[in-house]
C-alpha cells in the first residue's frame, strides 16, 4: 500500500515534532491538571455540605469524580491542541501551496499530524492520569461490562474525528479573515460548556439539556463519557451512535466544502 506509507511517515514526523520541545510539552501537560484537581475539590466540598449520601442530579460523589476523570481520559484521546492554529497559519503564510502540487491530501495529512499529536500527548499524560486515577481509586467507577467498553471505544473514535473535522472547518476561515483565533475561541467557549467539560449535562434543567442535543457539542465529549458511565444504554445508545456518526459525516463534508471554496479564493488571491 504505497499510497498509505506516506501518511505513516507523516505520523512519524508529527511525533518527532511534538517531542522537540519536551520541557515545554511536559510543563503544559502538568499545568493542565490544575483546573481538574481544583474542580474535584470543589465538588467534594459541595457534597460534604449537603451531607452523607447526597446526590447532585443522579450523581453520587464517586460518580461525579469518575465523570471528571473519564472526561480527562476522553479529552486526552481526542482534544485538538494546536492543529487549528497550525492549519490557519499554513493557509495565511501560503504554505499550503506545496500541497496543491504534491500527491498528498492536505486533510489526511493534517489528520495524521492530529493523531500523532494525540499519541505523544497520551504517552506524556499516561503517568499523571494513571496516578490520579489510582489516588482516587475509591471514587473511580468501572464500566458495567465489556460491551460498554467496546461501544465507549467506538464513540471515542467518532469523537476524535468530529473534533478534528470541526477544527479543520474553523481553520478554513483563514481563507477569508486575517485573524481566526477569536472565532476559534468563541466556538471553544461553547464547546467547553455544552460538551460537558465543565459539568455533566444532565444536571442542567431538562429543557436546556434537551436543546443541546440538537447541536454537535454533546457528541464531542459528553456522549462517550455517558456510555462509559452506563447512562446511555440499549436503543438510546444505538441512535446516539448513529447521530454521532451523522455529525462526523456532516463535519467532514463541511470541512471539504470550505476547503474547496477557500482554494478557489486562495488561487485567485495568490495569482
Amino acid at each position: 500500500m504505497p499510497g498509505l506509507t506516506k501518511y505513516w511517515h507523516v505520523l512519524n514526523i508529527g511525533v518527532q515534532n511534538s517531542l522537540t520541545y519536551r520541557f515545554n510539552f511536559l510543563t503544559r501537560t502538568l499545568f493542565g491538571f490544575i483546573p481538574l484537581t481544583a474542580m474535584l475539590w470543589l465538588w467534594r466540598t459541595i457534597y460534604e455540605g449537603k451531607g452523607a449520601d447526597a446526590t447532585v442530579g443522579t450523581y453520587t460523589l464517586a460518580q461525579m469524580i469518575s465523570y471528571y476523570l473519564v472526561v480527562t481520559v476522553v479529552d486526552a484521546f481526542t482534544a485538538v491542541s494546536e492543529d487549528d492554529w497550525q492549519i490557519a497559519a499554513d493557509i495565511k503564510d501560503g504554505r499550503i501551496s506545496q500541497f496543491l502540487l504534491k500527491p498528498i491530501d492536505y486533510l489526511w495529512f493534517r489528520l495524521c499530524l492530529y493523531f500523532s499529536g494525540r499519541l505523544t500527548y497520551l504517552a506524556v499524560a499516561f503517568v499523571p492520569v494513571t496516578l490520579l486515577i489510582l489516588y482516587l481509586r475509591h471514587y473511580f467507577v468501572l464500566p458495567p461490562d465489556g460491551m460498554t467498553v467496546a461501544f465507549f471505544a467506538l464513540s471515542v473514535l467518532l469523537t476524535a474525528l468530529l473534533q478534528f473535522f470541526l477544527s479543520y472547518m474553523m481553520a478554513m476561515l483563514a481563507f477569508w479573515v486575517l485573524e481566526v483565533s477569536t472565532f476559534i475561541f468563541i466556538l471553544y467557549a461553547f464547546e467547553y460548556i455544552a460538551s460537558g467539560h465543565m459539568f455533566p449535562l444532565d444536571i442542567l434543567p431538562p429543557v436546556v439539556e434537551g436543546a443541546l442535543y440538537f447541536t454537535p457539542f454533546p457528541y464531542q465529549l459528553y456522549f462517550p463519557v455517558g456510555i462509559y458511565m452506563g447512562k446511555v444504554t440499549g436503543m438510546e445508545l444505538i441512535t446516539g451512535l448513529v447521530m454521532q456518526a451523522g455529525w462526523v459525516v456532516l463535519a467532514y463534508l463541511l470541512a471539504r466544502f470550505a476547503w474547496h471554496r477557500g482554494i478557489k479564493r486562495y488561487a485567485a488571491a495568490g495569482g
Partner: peptide
C-alpha cells in the same frame, strides 16, 4: 533557558481558574 517558553506562559492561565474558586473548597497540602 529554554527556547519555546510561550506555551509555559499560557500554562499560567490554568492558575487563574483556581483564583476564582472559594478558598474553603480546598484543604491540606493543596
Amino acid at each position: 533557558w529554554t527556547v519555546k517558553a510561550q506555551g509555559i506562559v499560557f500554562g499560567y492561565y490554568n492558575l487563574f481558574q483556581i483564583a476564582r474558586m472559594p478558598d474553603e473548597a480546598f484543604r491540606g497540602m493543596y
